[in-house]
Design a protein around this nucleic acid. Structure first.
Lengths: 129, 129
DNA sequence: ATTTTTCTACGAAAATTTTCGTACGTGTGC
DNA sequence: GCACACGTACGAAAATTTTCGTAGAAAAAT
């Protein structure tokens, strides 16, 4: 299945996060990471990862008895896809409004603020209308 | 039920959006709005709104035969709550990274960019560390 | 070599979310 | 009055997501 338009469920997203952070993993590694947050049976994790592989969200190397899994989608791409959806469904598509709230809520470091400002400078120069 | 920590499902969020945009509504009005996007049976919408009322997401005025519903949570509050969750699960809590992507993807007007810059100015003055 | 552990496969139960059929009461027009 | 449109209530089917038990093969330990 083409993963480009598959929306991961919440449980699937947690697994993707682990794989993005750690690279290739076995089911056992992923399961252990999941268990840091909450109790999850081994076969539950296994089944999830098998389903995700069918959906095209993961790939796996079966050359060894213990299969090794990888995310089949880039973190950035998935973030963009989910952000678009979130923006639509929660902020009616208004990025500015989302950005204002995100900045307002969180304590963002001065360093990060500078970077964001730089991006805005470039966008204004580049020519938003 | 206390609505403060209830996470709406996707279908519930769509209904909240309609009520936030239009204020008090009957089931029929909401159903008509939903049908602009996709076919939805009347009793389906009714049931959803009844469930949401039980959860505390909506309130209703039953003084007339045709009940009138309102959102029981403020749009802002819900946005904040969902944004926090989204930030955590998709951007590992990094607001800056979310903001950069949100700005990068969308075409935001010069007007909006100015507002965001103003907010950043205030935050820097206010003293982010 | 036998037991124990570790792994995958798979079906199905459990939990959650969404949809809808049916019943039944009330108002409206004829 | 009677028929018909329109409303709520409610249970349960359908669809989706998550969890897990069991079986059986392969590796490791004893």
């Amino acid at each position: 299945m083409n993963p480009e338009h598959v929306k991961p469920t919440e449980a699937e997203l947690e697994i993707l996060q682990i794989l993005w952070a750690r690279g290739a993993c076995t089911v056992r590694e992923v399961n252990e990471q999941l268990n840091l947050k909450r109790e999850t049976g081994y076969t539950t994790t296994l089944k999830m990862m098998q389903i995700m592989t069918e959906k095209g969200l993961l790939t796996r190397d079966e050359s060894q008895r213990t299969h090794v899994y990888r995310a089949a989608v880039q973190e950035r791409d998935m973030q963009k896809r989910l952000l678009d959806k979130f923006l639509d469904s929660v902020f009616k598509g208004s990025a500015a409004s989302l950005v204002m709230q995100a900045l307002g809520n969180s304590q963002t470091s001065a360093e990060e603020l500078r970077e964001i400002r730089k991006l805005i400078d470039e966008m204004e120069k580049g020519g938003a209308k």
